[in-house]
Amino acid sequence: MDIKQTVFSSIGQKLLLATSGLIMFLLFLIPHMGGNILFLFGPDIFNSYAEHLHQLVPIVIGIEVLMMVSISVHMFMGIRVALENRTAHDKRLSQKSTKERSLAARLMPVSGGMIFIFIIKHLLDFTLRAKPVTELHGHEVNDVYGMLLDKFTQPGHVIFYVLFMVAVGLHLSHALQSAVQTYGVYVPRKGSRIKLLSKLIAIGMASTFAIIPIIAFLHTR
């Protein structure tokens, strides 16, 4: 069996899905959440964090490249798997009635698509635009804090961000446990701690991300 066949086999594709997903989760999502939490400590700390991040440009670029690759692989494989599964499944006509399949699992392609839309918007909102400038300890720095506050004065934005964080939560809650099983670690059907942990992490992360726009919104009232 050659490499290509392994990669594009059903298990190979899922291993790539799981791996690219976990890279994004570990190297991007978690640090990003850590950074976001600093928002709660006021403009100085948050802006200083952003400034420090700038000084780490080589690493950041490295991670950004890795992210681009991961997103591409993840999306490519995700779409492939979803399309193949649609073809393989002959639609039944009678109602399906077991409860085993979770809502999160059912909505994986939808939540995945939503996350992609969110990323585009998020980049447009914050990364790919000119940032206001402020002064910190005598230096001139980007006022990311102010930019954020500014953005979330509009309720529409807040609702959009919160809604899309629900998608992130749903996606993660199935993705984490599923990735573990795909790597060959047994995740039982019932009473699994891995499943529980997967849900807790998903809820925790989604709400931490969602709380920033809400607080920002309340802050400006």
Binding site: K14, A88, T98, R101, H174, S178, T182, R189
Partner: peptide
Amino acid sequence: DELGFGNCSNEYECAV
């Protein structure tokens, strides 16, 4: 894979 079966998404309907 060749026979047109789908890919497992760990939803466990099979085990039920």
